[in-house]
Design a protein around this nucleic acid. Structure first.
Lengths: 230, 230
DNA sequence: TTCAAAACCTGACATATGTCATAGTATTGC
DNA sequence: GCAATACTATGACATATGTCAGGTTTTGAA
């Protein structure tokens, strides 16, 4: 593990922890524990009471919710620098989402007491967390609109652009984050078969190119048009 | 207007303002203005920069977002005690939602400076706002799952139960909040015709009873079953 | 009260999407 | 290296939902 003190952790630059004072960070660092999670393993499950938050150092986790009909809806993909479980800790409720690693991960677990005491004492930190949450809520509203107003085809096109823009591409241009067809279906909220069919169609049309599980966005412009309904 | 000082306003009990100190409230009360909004009139429009937040004293407003295909998706119904526009003010961005009155309203407009200065000084207030937003975010996640996994029929059944539980019924058992079929369609994210068809079906099955525009939930149990997919 | 506009309703039809069945293909563990 | 397992793919079909077109009823303003 390269750097195990929060004070020096680069990841912190990207999240609310940057608004903490030196002393607060020290305290957090002393109380945190680091965990390695293998792809496919859960960090926590829907309904769990969380005793702290998880700060992602490396890898990606899906945050999903099981619907009554047995399907999993992926609500968010959390990556380096993001904090998971804050909502549950802040509202003091059990969590409404499950977190499962979609790639090997390294996360820091920060006990809720460290968070809560800072929330009560440091308005800047609280405000920073609030700003983050305001942003998440806005994104959630956008997702609601997309879900109800766009076709599956449009949502899948959007999903590929999202993966490209947020997780990047490797040297060969393939998406760094590889999701199974089932996960893609669960992100856009459709049946796995429907997702597969549409992905095949995109291949035929030259919008994407695949090699095994890996996917490359071949024509971002056309994908964008597709996402907008042309 | 019955009571025009925030310090004495009952509405405040239901929202984050209750965490303000006496002096802070006084300052808010001095800077606020009260407005009457007629049914159908907008409070603000998607894209507007908000110079403050709106605290609902009376009536109901729909918060909606226009989708690229021209349809309006209603994301939330705000009623007495709720504060609108906080997200935009907190994140210092223009708002992503439009607010339009669905019944005659009375609202207080609170300039953002009053809010912002308290956010920086009073951690309890900030934390209270944060808790509210955490709650909203959780609800938004639930809506996402419902949108993608439930049928229109299930969502409409849910919507009636929601209206009953959150806005109540009058002496005759009719829903206090009367929405047009179009608004109902926009809440559940479907075409107006589809909503009308399903409402007619519910009538025939005796799940609801209508008289003019007014709707009464006739069999809450069966509606609940319907919402859960039976 | 009257009339025009808005809201509601229904049918016919096209289309998007889900479901089930089946088979090929990659991965993994032993 | 092989079997078991998961993942990907495709066809056939059922169903849910959207769209268009035409009515009827309700509402609100002159």
């Amino acid at each position: 593990m390269e750097e195990s003190r929060c004070e020096n952790c680069i990841v912190r630059q990207f999240n609310s922890l940057r608004a903490m004072s030196k002393e607060e960070l020290k305290q957090v660092s002393d109380s945190k524990t680091t965990k390695s999670i293998k792809k496919g393993e859960p960090l926590f499950q829907e309904g769990d009471k969380l005793n702290g938050v998880y700060c992602v150092r490396n890898g990606v986790s899906k945050l999903s919710k099981l619907s009554p009909n047995g399907k999993d809806q992926i609500v968010k993909l959390a990556t380096k620098g993001e904090v998971m479980g804050q909502r549950s800790v802040i509202a003091e409720e059990s969590t409404n989402l499950s977190a499962i690693a979609v790639s090997d991960m390294e996360v820091c677990f920060i006990p809720k007491d460290s968070i809560n005491s800072t929330l009560h004492k440091n308005p800047n930190f609280t405000l920073e967390v609030l700003r983050h949450m305001a942003h998440d809520l806005k994104e959630a509203d956008d997702v609601i609109v997309n879900m109800s107003q766009k076709t599956v085809k449009q949502r899948i096109a959007e999903a590929f652009l999202y993966l490209k823009n947020n997780f990047g591409e490797d040297d060969e241009g393939f998406l760094k984050l590889t999701l199974s067809r089932e996960d893609i279906a669960n992100v856009v909220g459709t049946a796995t078969e429907s997702a597969i069919r549409i992905i095949s169609e995109f291949k035929k049309k030259g919008l994407i190119y695949t090699s095994g599980k890996r996917i490359r966005v071949a024509d971002a412009r056309k994908l964008q048009d597709m996402a907008e309904g042309f």
